[in-house]
Design a protein around this nucleic acid. Structure first.
Lengths: 262, 262
DNA sequence: CGATTCCTTGAGGCATCTCAAGGCAAGTGG
DNA sequence: CCACTTGCCTTGAGATGCCTCAAGGAATCG
């Protein structure tokens, strides 16, 4: 990732949608209001009513830019914020004592980072930007305060956490019982779906992460990731050029999973 | 653990604090109060103050017995409760469409079940008792209500969820980058530690789950689990007799992990 | 323009899976 | 009480999918 990653790659830009531009964005200092954010529906898992959003607005979250390759927070760091990706993308990593790391997830705009910190008051994993990115830094204490008065807000908070649990469930599933092709197919379909949810093409996208990072997430070596990409291309499922991926036959890709999961 | 696990194993009983015995426990119908529960410190992750515990007591959670092998809830079922294991033990499983299942965790007394249900209002995984067991059924809505008034209660809730996230992190780590011996060593050390936290011997215990279930959790076939047990025994690390395990050389077992995780 | 990073591909090795057989313990019915 | 079934565990032998090691190419960066 990082500096280099962009390369001659995709022009597909991340976020940046319609209604943002005119107000509150440009001359704004570095604060954000949820009510005017186009990622609102993605960040706040469903049904947060008007009054609650207004209260959220009261907090006016600070934004924070993160350069490609630099970290948003590190493993072991004190937990104070959860972060919502505004633009760009991140990886979550568990650091091993010896300096190696294990990727536990990639985050796209509208997705949350840092939820694991609530367990002990310090982050179990770290997060690093895969490209120049921006986040909303949400003070966890403030969020908790808001939740004290509101069932809804309370539930949103729980739902966010629970979602993370469910997400990891399926990753465990993948790591525990799939072969290389199934893993990569699952990964690609997952990315595809998330891109779609963000209004991008589900059939064509740029992976901001390296083969090694994909491998780390999926529990395989980078060579195997590369070979599996090649295999998919040969089978006519994908069109791959480095980090640019076009899904040619999404049904066949799905069938790879169904074959195993039946 | 409890009833059965004890067997020839550890006599060290769990918590059992001072003020418990005399009141409210015996003739109780099938309701429980947290304040008098010896698993309190395990269920409620740290620091829930007096007033909050009192409010919890007001809920008087229903108990529920679950026969060995029967399910507490199934994947897809409507989410209404979270459960705290009182006695016995459980497995959490993700059901695959074809009927097979993947174990995502084992729960001991004082541990919680069902947290994944908050994401969508229905359980992503199911839970089944590994032996005759008993749980507290905690209505999620009531818990949320309590949390509305209390920062502390609110945080306990979040902490419980976050813990689950952290727990799954390490399982992903295991599944993603360890070999068979490391996986089993990690599993055994984890069980050992949890037994210890419950006042049982960390060196000798009964595994209530089958080789196949351990394998499912750890991402290996039952034969490999069996072979790895045998290997550990030959290396003088364990004394294994079916489900009864005695850890002979816990340091060597730890070193197996450190070798990889360095 | 050399250094660096990342990706691809090949060849061979090994860890784990697959398939198969047998043992042990508990439960069941005659 | 014994024959039989059933479920679970163990162990062996062979197959294989992924890893390891290695080399080369392409793009980026300073």
């Amino acid at each position: 990732m990082h500096p280099a990653v962009e390369s001659a790659v995709a022009p597909i830009r991340v976020v940046r949608s319609s209604r943002t531009s005119s107000r509150s964005a440009e001359p704004a200092p570095l604060r954000t209001q949820c009510s005017t954010c186009h990622l609102r529906e993605l960040c706040l898992p469903c049904g947060l009513g008007g009054p609650d959003v207004e209260r959220l607005d009261g907090l006016r979250f600070a934004r924070r830019k993160v350069k490609a390759g630099s970290t948003l927070y590190r493993s072991g760091e004190k937990f104070g914020f959860i972060y919502a990706v505004r633009s760009g993308s991140f990886k979550s990593v568990l650091a091993l004592p010896d300096g190696r790391e294990h990727v536990t997830g990639f985050q796209l705009p509208g997705e949350l980072l840092g939820l694991d910190g609530a367990a002990n008051g310090s982050h179990a994993s770290g997060a690093a930007a895969l490209e120049d990115s921006e986040v909303c830094a949400i003070p966890y204490a403030h969020l908790s305060d808001l939740a004290i008065g509101s069932t809804e807000m309370q539930q949103v908070l729980s739902r966010m956490m629970s979602r993370e649990i469910v997400r990891e469930h399926s990753l465990m599933m993948l790591l525990g019982s799939m072969n290389a092709e199934e893993r990569l197919a699952a990964f690609l379909l997952n990315v595809s779906q998330r891109m779609k949810a963000r209004g991008y093409s589900p059939r064509e996208f740029h992976l901001r992460m390296s083969r090694a990072e994909i491998g780390s997430l999926l529990g395989m070596k980078l060579e195997t990731v590369s070979r599996t990409f090649s295999a998919f291309q040969q089978q006519g499922l994908l069109d791959v050029d480095k980090k640019h991926v076009r899904i040619v036959d999404i049904d066949a890709l799905s069938r790879i999973l169904e074959a195993r999961v039946q």
